[in-house]
Amino acid sequence: MPEFHLFAKGPRPVAPFSHAVEADGWVILTGQMPTDPEAPDAPLPEGIEAQTRRVMDNLALILAEMGLDLSHVVQCRCFLTEFERDYAAFNDTYQTYFPEDRRPARTTVGVTALAVGALVEIDCIARRPEAGA
């Protein structure tokens, strides 16, 4: 049976969802926004680099609540509202979160809008290590 997780330390949800759902060792994280978990009503960070860092930090926070980290991520989906303008700067920031030889599979899509007026949203899938592995 899937386990549904909503964490008090996690970012305040902007819609009706769980922060993560786990089934059979697979952990699916809801797309995170560049909101500050400690100040959810604060303005979003300025610019794609700062928003990407906040989103990645929010993903890391949710993973940590699950006893995991970014090294367990196998796939990310990234959404950018200003794809052509922000793609290169987004990549420059995003890649700092993963070693060059352990980057997850990834899809990046340009979209017309995101919740809370964000420039970026990222969701991901992580896998728990096998017991004894």
Rank of each mutant, 00 (worst) to 15 (best):
E3H: 15
F7A: 14
F7D: 14
P11R: 12
P13S: 12
V14Q: 15
A15G: 13
A15E: 12
F17V: 10
H19I: 13
V21Y: 05
D24C: 11
G25T: 02
W26C: 09
W26T: 15
V27D: 07
V27A: 11
I28A: 15
G31C: 11
G31E: 12
Q32M: 12
P34K: 02
P34E: 04
D36H: 08
E38P: 02
E38A: 13
A39Y: 01
D41Q: 10
D41I: 01
L44D: 03
P45I: 11
E46D: 15
E46T: 06
D57R: 08
N58Q: 07
A60Y: 00
A60G: 13
L61E: 03
I62A: 00
I62V: 14
A64Q: 13
E65Q: 15
E65C: 15
G67D: 01
L68C: 08
L70W: 09
L70I: 08
S71P: 02
H72Q: 14
Q75M: 10
C76E: 15
C78L: 02
F79C: 14
F79Y: 15
T81G: 05
F83K: 02
F83M: 08
D86Q: 01
A88T: 14
F90D: 05
N91C: 12
T93A: 05
Y94P: 07
Q95G: 00
Q95L: 09
T96R: 15
P99Q: 09
R102E: 04
P104Q: 05
A105L: 12
R106F: 08
R106P: 01
T107G: 04
T107K: 00
T108F: 01
V111A: 04
V111T: 05
V111D: 03
T112A: 02
T112C: 02
T112M: 09
L114E: 05
L114Y: 06
L114H: 07
A115E: 10
A115C: 07
A118P: 03
L119G: 03
E121I: 00
C124F: 05
C124T: 05
I125Q: 11
R127S: 06
R128E: 04
R128A: 01
P129H: 09
P129A: 05
G132S: 14
G132E: 10
